[in-house]
Lab assay of single mutants.
Amino acid sequence: NSLAEAKVLANRELDKYGVSDYYKNLINNAKTVEGVKALIDEILA
């Protein structure tokens, strides 16, 4: 998966839960796919 794909999928996942734009910005600023995954795990914990 590319970083861009990971960000799109992460933001879709956040949308399902009604997560605020603050967290979407964190996702969009992530530098690695692993970073995106770690943020998602933390946000949805």
Rank of each mutant, 00 (worst) to 15 (best):
V8N: 15
E5A: 12
V33L: 11
V19S: 07
G18H: 12
K7V: 03
E5V: 12
N11M: 10
S20N: 10
L44R: 14
K7P: 02
K37H: 12
I40K: 10
Y22A: 09
V36E: 00
A38K: 13
D21T: 04
R12L: 15
E5P: 02
L14E: 00
K24G: 03
E13D: 05
D41I: 14
N25K: 11
A38M: 11
D41L: 13
L9N: 15
E5F: 06
R12T: 12
V33N: 03
G18F: 09
A45R: 15
L44N: 04
G35F: 11
S2F: 09
A45Q: 12
D41E: 13
N11G: 08
K31V: 13
N25G: 11
I43N: 00
D15T: 08
Y17D: 02
N29K: 10
A38E: 07
E34V: 05
R12V: 14
N11L: 12
A10P: 01
I27M: 03
V33E: 04
N28D: 11
Y22K: 09
T32K: 01
K24Y: 12
V19D: 04
I43S: 02
E42H: 14
I40M: 15
L3P: 01
A10H: 01
Y22G: 05
D15W: 03
I40R: 10
E34Y: 04
R12M: 15
K31N: 12
A10V: 03
N28L: 11
A30V: 05
E13W: 13
Y23I: 04
E5K: 10
L9F: 04
T32I: 01
I40S: 03
E34H: 09
E34L: 07
A10L: 03
Y17L: 13
V8D: 15
L14F: 03
K16L: 07
A6F: 07
L26N: 02
L3E: 01
A45E: 07
E34W: 04
K16A: 07
L39F: 04
Y23A: 06
A4N: 07
A4E: 13
V19R: 05
K7A: 01
E42Q: 14
E5T: 09
K16S: 07
A38I: 11
E34I: 07
E42F: 14
A4V: 10
L14A: 15
A10G: 07
K24C: 03
Y17M: 14
S2T: 12
L39K: 02
T32R: 02
L39N: 01
T32S: 11
E13A: 10
E34R: 07
L44M: 12
S20I: 08
L9Y: 04
A45I: 10
D15I: 06
D21I: 04
S20L: 06
A45T: 11
L26E: 05
D41K: 14
N29A: 13
Y23K: 02
S2K: 13
L26F: 05
L14V: 05
A38R: 12
A6L: 14
K16H: 07
I40Q: 06
E13Y: 15
L14H: 01
N11D: 07
Y22P: 03
N11F: 14
Y23R: 02
N25T: 13
I43F: 13
S2P: 12
S20P: 11
E42L: 14
G35L: 14
D21G: 07
I27W: 00
K37P: 00
D41W: 09
V36Y: 01
E13L: 15
A38L: 11
G18D: 08
L44E: 03
K24M: 05
N28W: 10
S2E: 14
K7I: 11
N29C: 11
I27G: 00
V19Y: 15
G18I: 08
Y22R: 04
A38Q: 12
A38S: 10
V33T: 05
L14Y: 01
I43E: 00
N25F: 09
N11V: 14
A45F: 10
E42A: 14
I43T: 02
L3I: 04
E42S: 13
K16M: 07
L14I: 08
E13G: 02
A4Q: 12
Y17P: 01
L9M: 13
A38Y: 09
L9R: 15
A45N: 13
V8C: 12
V33F: 04
V33M: 08
Y22M: 08
N28F: 06
V8T: 14
Y22S: 05
A4L: 07
Y22E: 10
D15R: 04
K37L: 13
E34P: 04
S20H: 07
N25R: 07
Y17C: 04
E34A: 12
A6N: 04
L9H: 14
T32A: 02
A4Y: 10
Y17V: 09
K24I: 07
N25I: 09
A30M: 11
K31M: 10
N28Q: 11
L9S: 15
N28S: 08
Y17E: 03
K31G: 08
